[in-house]
Amino acid sequence: MSLPDILTRIRSAEARAGRPAHSARLVAVTKGHLLEEIRHKVLAHGEFPLGENRGQEVRDKVREWSETAGGAPQPRWHYIGPLQSNKVKYLERVELIHTIEDVTQAEVVAEHAQKWGHAPGVLLQVHNGEAQKHGIAPGELSSVLAGVRATGLDVRGLMVMAPYDQPAEARRIFHDTAQRAHDLGLGELSMGMSGDFEIAVEEGATLVRVGSALFE
């Protein structure tokens, strides 16, 4: 599926939900893909944030871009994978981290941000109720939010993942997460992937993370 096709589907989902056009934005998930392919599949169609899930891959792509782009500005990098404290050092050029799970992680990011002279925005990853390792239990969101804000980081919203190929359950999770973000006064919602991004947009996603559909 081409990037323009994905954007058309996002705009259609916005319209079905009665949302303003362009209120949901695409994060192109580029993990495992070469810069040449990313330029052709993504950046040829405009400026979109690129989502990566490994710190070393972000570091390597930032370096390769600097060496091959002839002075063109770096793309906007987002980090969407599990956050390991010893890999935060590779995320200096990342503008948004989607996957903060506890205050300790936030403290590590804030410490590195002081060295970098700038701080990325962050999202809190919500546990979706499935048997999974990552995410904050919904009942703990308020306390974690307060703790992360105490580090000085800008908490912009929530992120959640839904089980694959279960549209009804995905809709429930997205709806619930959107309500929690509203209750906490948070505006950014990173929800939806290749198989369910349209449902996520209908339920309020402001960022959808699409990779496999884009590069198939």
Rank of each mutant, 00 (worst) to 15 (best):
S2R: 09
S2M: 06
L3H: 05
L7W: 06
I10T: 12
A15M: 13
A15E: 15
A15G: 07
R16Q: 13
G18D: 01
G18I: 07
A21E: 13
H22M: 12
L26I: 05
A28V: 05
V29C: 09
V29F: 01
K31N: 00
E36A: 15
H40T: 15
V42Y: 02
L43C: 03
G46Q: 06
L50W: 11
L50M: 05
G51K: 06
E52N: 04
R54K: 14
E57G: 08
R59E: 14
D60F: 13
V62K: 02
R63V: 09
R63N: 11
E64L: 15
W65P: 13
W65G: 10
E67N: 05
G71F: 12
G71V: 12
W77D: 03
G81P: 10
G81T: 09
G81R: 11
S85A: 14
S85T: 15
N86R: 05
K87N: 01
V88P: 00
E92G: 01
R93E: 15
I100H: 01
D102S: 08
V103I: 11
E107H: 04
V108S: 04
G117R: 07
G117P: 02
G121I: 10
V122A: 00
L123H: 02
L124V: 07
H127A: 10
G135S: 08
A146D: 15
A146H: 12
G152K: 08
G152Q: 05
L153N: 05
D154H: 14
V155H: 02
M159A: 03
M159T: 04
D165H: 12
R172W: 02
A178P: 11
L184C: 09
G187R: 14
G192T: 09
D196N: 10
D196E: 09
F197L: 04
E198V: 14
I199Y: 04
V201D: 06
V201N: 05
E202Y: 02
A205D: 01
R209P: 07
V210K: 07
S212M: 06
A213I: 05
F215I: 08
